[in-house]
Design a protein around this nucleic acid. Structure first.
Length: 502
RNA sequence: GGCGAGAUAGCAAAAUGGUUAUGCAGCGGAUUGCAAAUCCGCCUAUCCCAGUUCGAUUCUGGGUCUCGCCUCCA
């Protein structure tokens, strides 16, 4: 049985879906005013892994990952760039999809954008006002009255008293309580029409937290199974989401319904033991890193750590991950798995083939073609086999991917030792569950474009072969050394000489 | 200041009240014309101090240090 660490309970709990055999999951996505960095990569990859494991476990999963496309930082950036909000967000949504695509992240079933759910947000704000939880402040903002919501702080483990005592809580003049947060921001004159919506409280735009409450309940219902996001969203964002979503339900049968059953939070990516973040300026964008490292190496790097642990980024660690992944591909290289449908559409289609994604369209979702190229159909895993059982046990224990990856290495050893095609098939199939190991091993090991092209390498190999035949080993070794200096490693096998990039 | 998470070998990272994690690096052997890859073997560990226990890295208490949230953040 799957156990999930639930932030709400501060403990691992048995996972029991609300509806038999189906899971509804919402993950807080990105605010699109800049390129995604490695921290965003971690959220996308981690919850992609969760999504895949739930599906592999037989659940019918509905996965929602939102896009925040209206917000202070977006408005500011658009003004700086002298471009429209729409142009800015469209650009960075496309960039985000490219990054996600490269990392083998499957397309969520729904990818709602805040600007397209303003009506639902207004509805919810109205309901909150009706329930006595929202009020209009002197400056025209509509705020949430935190102290009126019993249980505020239950997710983050904070009490209103503790928070008030905190030195970092500003006293905002327009709020009844410094901890109250904005539901609806009144329009400022200098702002573009683009960021002004009509509302019963005058022109304005939504606060940040309300979008997730509105989109979550609109698409997944008022009560769903899993809500995820980065650990920094636990407070205040997710705390406020609970206050909004559960607060809005107060009128129903007089009792407050539960919003989400399991809250999941992934750990941070760090640089030199410090959180990677925009404000610290110590971030690496995904595309920056992908110039240097293969995307699957980055994905492997993320998944070999547990999702709740901190993950330190450095070249040394990426180099390490690269070599480790090469070991797995090397094991697959010489073995042809039996004709099982392991990837693509059962036809052994190459991994770079773009398959059309099958997004279930909810009313206003973004769709981007070619997003989903690593989506795999028909993965065949023999779950009764001992390695697969270990893998499953690990994954069922709060998605213990480090342990699951360790099983992959044990399986690789088995493959190398026994040359078993079955074991190789199992390795590839289990890899697919994590979104790994689906490329042609040869292509993976020869990837990159360092200096020599294939033809030049081939010619050198031929020349060396001739030298070897003439028993001119000095010449043969000279050629090999020359190739090595160009980053090409030769491997003589009974089947002939093959090469890979170091 | 309040709240929370964590300290495992050279590096990374799991697990466990007693029995090989795993990967990278290193050492020895097999294999190879020499290599590479692979296989076999080896090395290096559980922050400190108490307590519980036959036995603690694992449980309890204290300490030290690190990190995070309390402001936008994945």
């Amino acid at each position: 049985m799957l156990k999930i660490y639930n932030t709400l309970a501060r403990d691992k709990q048995d996972f029991k879906p609300i509806t038999l055999n189906s899971v509804r999951m919402y993950v807080c996505g990105m605010t699109v005013y800049d390129y995604c960095h490695l921290g965003h990569a971690r959220v996308m990859v981690v919850f992609d892994m969760v999504y895949r494991w739930l599906k592999a476990s037989g659940y019918d999963v509905t996965y929602v990952r939102n896009i925040t496309d209206i917000d202070d930082k977006i408005i500011k950036r658009a003004a700086e760039n002298k471009e429209s909000i729409h142009a800015l967000t469209a650009r960075f949504i496309a960039a985000m999809h490219e990054d996600a695509d490269a990392l083998g992240v499957q397309h969520p079933d729904h990818e709602p954008r805040a600007t397209q759910y303003v009506a639902e947000m207004l509805e919810m704000i109205a309901q909150l006002e009706k329930n006595g939880l929202a009020y209009r402040a002197a400056d025209g903002d509509v705020n949430y009255a935190v102290r009126k919501f019993a249980g505020y702080g239950k997710l983050s483990g904070k009490s209103l008293e503790d928070l008030r005592a905190g030195e970092r809580v500003d006293i905002a003049g327009n709020k009844n309580d410094p901890l109250d947060f904005v539901l609806w921001k009144h329009a400022k004159e200098q702002e573009a029409d683009e960021v002004k919506w009509d509302s019963p409280w005058g022109k304005g735009r939504p606060g940040w937290h309300i979008e997730c409450s509105a989109m979550g309940s609109e698409i997944l219902g008022k009560h769903f199974d899993i809500h995820g996001g980065g650990a920094d969203l636990q407070f205040p964002h997710h705390e406020n989401e609970i206050a909004q979503s559960e607060g809005a339900q107060l009128h129903e049968k007089g009792s407050r319904g539960q919003y989400v059953n399991y809250w999941m939070h992934n750990g941070f990516v760090r640089v030199d033991e410090e959180k990677m973040s925009k404000s610290l300026g110590n971030f690496f964008t995904i595309r920056e890193v992908l110039k240097k490292y293969d995307a699957e190496v980055v994905r492997f790097f993320i998944l070999r750590a547990h999702y709740r642990s901190p993950l330190n980024y450095s070249d040394v660690h990426l180099d390490d991950a690269k070599k480790a992944l090469e070991r797995l591909y090397t094991a697959l290289k010489s073995i042809t798995p039996p004709g099982l449908p392991l990837s693509g559409e059962e036809t052994g289609s190459p991994p770079d083939e773009t398959t059309s994604h099958s997004t279930k369209t909810s009313k206003n979702d973004v769709q981007v073609a070619g997003y989903d190229k690593w989506r795999l159909g028909g993965v065949v895993v023999d779950w009764n086999e001992p390695y697969a059982q270990r893998f499953k046990t690990a994954m069922d224990d709060d998605f213990n991917t480090p342990e699951a990856v360790a099983v992959l290495f044990d399986l690789a050893n088995e493959v190398n030792r026994t040359q078993s095609a079955q074991a190789a098939a199992q390795l590839k199939a289990l890899g697919a569950v994590l979104g790994l190991l689906q490329r042609d091993p040869q292509a993976f090991l020869q990837r990159g474009a360092g200096g020599l092209d294939d033809a030049a390498i081939g010619a050198q190999i031929e020349a060396r072969l001739a030298a070897k035949k003439a028993r001119n080993f000095a010449e043969a070794d000279r050629i090999r050394k020359e190739l090595l200096e160009a980053g090409i490693v030769l491997e003589d096998t009974p089947q002939g000489t093959s090469w890979r990039r170091a």
